[in-house]
């Protein structure tokens, strides 16, 4: 059974899509069959990979019974990574899309039909705590909260936590918060340093791994690639996502999830 992980934040610009994409790539490159689902009406995953707004069919077509799920899940050049894009959703119909995704069983049916094929299903959600985010949380086992290292994000984190708590208490008791992932961290800047100081000192559940603000993300976005796929020297930011994979797998195992990893090792001799 898959580990279904939603990336959620009330605030825009926290790096949800960047985290979702690069985390999915890191999981897949580690050998885990991974599906990345884009439920964001913006279709940010497609944009991050340099695609046009109407390039890919996806979840929207599946929701309207235009195409079966098998025909909208896209393989990638990374054999262990598949994508379920948003689909060719007309921006004029975003309101209807939100209501349908929330009120229908589409998302849970999609998950049910594919979860045996994947170890990890990553769901990229839109900013905010509206119907789509709630739909994603209702089908997820785990949630990851990117937190931008800046004041507005810290002031608003309670909103997201409040919704998570409500969903867990009333709608999806299986939902577990993996942790808070600090993003766009710049420890050499006073404001960012102060925020991180407060976050590390005051909040439980902040992940050890954090994602620094770095030009490489802009470069990757321009080229329509995950950071690990950029040419040249392997970016340290890509290594961060590998560390993130290790950390969240450890947490998932601790929460009783199945990661396929084993803690058992045979004794080895050094000399």
């Amino acid at each position: 059974m898959a580990n279904i992980l939603s990336i959620v934040s009330s605030k825009g610009g926290a790096g949800k899509t960047t985290v979702a994409l690069n985390l999915a790539v890191a999981l897949a490159e580690g050998g885990d069959n991974t599906l990345l689902i884009d439920v964001d009406p913006l279709g940010a995953i497609g944009f991050s990979l340099g695609q046009s707004d109407t390039e890919w069919r996806g979840l929207a077509e599946c929701m309207m019974d235009k195409l079966p799920i098998d025909e909208v899940i896209m393989p990638t050049k990374l054999p262990t990574l598949s994508l379920l894009p948003r689909g060719r959703l007309d921006p004029l119909d975003v309101g209807i899309y939100e209501e349908l995704l929330h009120s229908s069983t589409t998302l849970s049916e999609v998950i049910a039909s594919v979860e045996k094929k994947f170890r990890y299903i990553i769901i990229d959600t839109p900013s905010g705590l509206g119907l789509i985010t709630r739909a994603a949380l209702s089908v997820s086992n785990f949630v990851l909260l990117p937190l931008q290292a800046e004041s507005l994000a810290l002031r608003s984190i309670s909103q997201t936590l409040r919704v998570l708590m409500h969903v867990k208490e009333n709608e999806n008791p299986n939902l577990e918060l993996l942790g808070i992932l600090a993003t766009m961290v710049q420890l050499n800047k006073d404001v960012s340093f102060n925020i991180m100081n407060t976050v590390w000192g005051s909040l439980r559940g902040v992940l050890e791994t954090y994602i620094p603000r770095a030009d490489v993300f802009g470069v990757a976005s321009e080229k329509g690639l995950p950071v690990a796929f950029l040419p040249g020297k392997y970016p340290p930011e890509a290594v961060r996502f590998e560390l993130l994979v290790t950390e969240i797998k450890d947490i998932i195992q601790g929460l009783g999830g199945v990661t396929g990893e084993t803690d058992e090792r045979p004794q080895r001799e050094l000399i």
């Binding site: 936590l161 998570l164 708590m165 577990e176 918060l177 407060t198 909040l203 439980r204």
Partner: peptide, 12 residues
């Protein structure tokens, strides 16, 4: 951060 801390204490 009081509410955030309370919720996180409950979640973790």
């Amino acid at each position: 951060l009081k509410q955030a801390q309370q919720i996180l204490s409950s979640l973790f």
